[in-house]
Design a protein around this nucleic acid. Structure first.
Lengths: 184, 184
DNA sequence: ACCTGAACACCGTTCAAGT
DNA sequence: ACCTGAACACCGTTCAAGT
């Protein structure tokens, strides 16, 4: 890639992060290009679809989540590991409003640019779930896709304007459905 | 209202119901007008915003849900009543894809045309929750807004394309978090 | 009263023309 | 190679003109 193209790409990613943080995942592509001081066609050349742009923005975050799953797996009890990781999942997914819907779409669509990052991250979560199930602290009738769906629904709740104050409480309610809480 | 205007309005509602069933809550207003054989300005004249159109479509359904709450309250045990009603809530809200997000927005915004129907319906659900709590079969640390949020998140899950097969299972998982299940 | 076409400012897509 | 302006087909909003 030519140096000026690389510079444009980097700049676009930074600006896109800002704009999407402000306006959500359905922000205007034209607006992003405008604020990057670049033609719309240039943005579309680097990221041919909105999905591709989101993919570039989220790949790092999702890869970090995958790595984080490995960390908590060795550092924490099965129950705490699952809790910590899900909290992280929700926090990161709520960073950009509306992005959880794109993620749901992407994990169902193998053609999506986001597909692989999503699948890998879900697999990491599944390992934490299975570990908790083996330790008898999580419901046995859940699989990785169920966990992913429940976590996503919590992220969706976090995206809803009036719900921030209850987000933590709702997290714990759903969490209590995932865990079996046999002790205590 | 003049007879021709009334006819247009009725016709628009029917067509809007069809189109939104097919395409979801963000269907093109122009398309709805087109399929109703009417100018776009005529649609906007009867329903000045998309919210207003959704309001007209959903008011009946929400009012029925409010009435249904009163029915199950007298006909069923506190636990069954809550279960039955929440299932109904999710089923109706999933009828038009994407509508649950509009509903969430509407209940936070007193200016919204949907606001009153939503608030009334939520209050009906709150009564069922309180009754279940009094009978000690539902978690005491939930209020009506929590219940509404959890039910909405289930409706959101039901809207996601790949999740229909797990919808019922996820409903039961979240339901188990709401109920205390002290017996059995 | 009610309806409508047209003008408007937006959107994302595409591509010929420029450097 | 890479960028860009312009044309395109869409969107919802608004309003003067028609019946």
């Amino acid at each position: 890639m030519r140096a000026d193209a690389r510079a444009n790409r980097d700049r676009l990613l930074v600006v896109a992060g800002d704009v999407i943080t402000e306006q959500g995942a359905d922000a205007s592509m034209r607006d992003i290009a405008r604020r990057a001081g670049v033609g719309l066609a240039t943005l579309l050349r680097h990221f041919p679809t909105r999905e591709a742009l989101l993919e570039a923005l989220l790949r790092t975050s999702f890869d970090e989540l995958t790595a984080r799953a490995a960390e908590v797996e060795t550092a924490s009890s099965p129950e705490d590991a699952l809790k910590l990781w899900l909290r992280d999942f929700v926090a990161r997914t709520t960073d950009y409003r509306g992005v959880v819907t794109s993620m749901m779409r992407a994990i169902e669509d193998p053609e999506s640019a986001l597909h692989n990052s999503c699948v890998t991250m879900r697999a990491a979560g599944t390992r934490l779930l299975n570990r908790a199930q083996a330790a008898d602290v999580a419901r046995a009738d859940l699989d990785g896709a169920d966990l992913f769906a429940l976590a996503s629904s919590l992220a969706w709740l976090g995206d809803q304007p009036g719900l921030e104050p209850r987000a933590e409480h709702l997290f714990e309610v759903v969490m209590s459905a995932i865990l079996t809480n046999r002790a205590s």
